[in-house]
């Protein structure tokens, strides 16, 4: 029997979770933009717009300390970050293109060496996804195999209904536990009809075919053409739910400071620059090629997944209008 939660009760749920001292993160109006931020009350939740940044930052912060060092009485001491202090978190109101990203990133963060900063946050968080009834002409989640109602990655999945309430499906045990702990906010019933989804402009892509083309066309005139205008900023990578590249830097003096891990982008000219001055990806189109290859070939080679959820953020944000969906369509339509 599906569970139903009214919008008011959803907001009440947030209030309760905040009271339980959980870190509740959801879309919230911050200045003039909607971002995933800690909600302090149910009324903070804004479900009108796709947040500018993806929800990956709950697991993979923009910038976080990974250790601190201090010289004490002449002896250097390195201190680990106490990851047990990471809060129990609930991500609420993430559409499938955001909720689905941890399911993709888990692979790279846990193969062989395990990034406990990411994984600990993952273990401590519950993801409440929500079916997407908005979307614009930049959206292409269907094209990369997701859908506005895809439950992948969500622990509890909400489907907006026409009467303003939500049908809930507890996808995982974490989701069930969340419902069970607040059972009085949910009611059983068939509920109203779901709100309709928005059509997407990009047709479903044949990702296998795209990957094959990428495999055979490391050198191709296409790369020169599409990245010709790329100005080399990191906007696409930083707001992407799936981009996971990072940099590690020390900040502080030689006696006292922290080492930080923070977002980095393959579009930056210095990303792969050797100290000697040699740069394997010395021009912008090689860097852009790496972006596409990483998402649609390399990641699949390594982990069997596509590193893209079709959220369309990079399309909306690109200063020069580079459209990854258009590039994929171009590749998809190639004959050989």
């Amino acid at each position: 029997m599906p569970q139903i939660i009214t919008e008011q009760n959803l907001r009440n749920l947030i209030d309760l979770l905040v009271k339980e001292a959980k870190l509740v993160v959801g879309p919230k109006l911050s200045g003039s933009v909607v971002l995933y931020e800690p909600l302090t009350a149910g009324s903070d939740l804004t479900l009108d717009a796709l947040p500018r940044r993806s929800s990956k930052e709950l697991f993979f912060p923009i910038c976080e300390d990974i250790l601190s060092y201090k010289r004490e009485n002449g002896a250097m001491k390195v201190n680990d970050v106490d990851r047990s202090k990471f809060p129990e978190a609930v991500l609420i109101g993430a559409p499938p293109c955001d909720a689905g990203s941890p399911a993709i990133l888990d692979a790279v963060m846990s193969w062989d060496y395990k990034d406990e900063f990411y994984l600990e946050r993952r273990r401590k968080s519950t993801i409440v996804g929500i079916a997407c009834t908005k979307g614009d002409d930049a959206c292409f989640c269907r094209a990369v195999g997701l859908a506005p109602d895809a439950e992948a990655g969500s622990d509890l999945f909400l489907t907006p209904l026409k009467d303003g309430s939500y049908a809930c499906n507890a996808v995982t045990e974490k989701g069930q536990a969340l419902v069970a702990a607040h059972q009085n906010l949910f009611s059983e019933g068939a509920g109203a009809e779901p709100k309709p989804f928005v059509d997407q402009a990009v047709a479903k892509l044949n990702l296998v075919k795209i990957k094959k083309w990428l495999e055979e066309h490391f050198e191709d005139p296409l790369w020169e053409k599409i990245a010709d205008i790329c100005v080399g900023c990191g906007a696409c990578a930083f707001i992407c739910p799936a981009c996971h590249c990072f940099d590690i830097n020390d900040e502080g003096s030689t006696d006292d400071g922290v080492r930080r891990k923070h977002w980095d982008a393959c579009g930056f000219a210095k990303f792969t620059n050797h100290a000697s001055g040699h740069n394997p990806r010395d021009v912008q189109n090689k860097r852009y090629r790496n972006r596409i290859m990483h998402k649609f070939k390399y990641y699949d080679d390594k982990f069997g997944k596509t590193l893209c959820t079709g959220c369309g953020r990079c399309i909306r944000a690109c200063p020069v209008g580079i459209d990854i969906a258009e590039i994929l369509e171009t590749i998809n339509s190639k004959q050989d």
């Binding site: 933009v33 100005v231 900023c233 990191g234 906007a235 707001i239 977002w263």
Partner: peptide, 16 residues
């Protein structure tokens, strides 16, 4: 402060 705190240093401002 509020505005700058949101900055993610994507460097788009610099690059364009």
């Amino acid at each position: 402060k509020e505005h700058f705190s949101r900055c993610i240093r994507c460097m788009a401002c610099r690059q364009v």
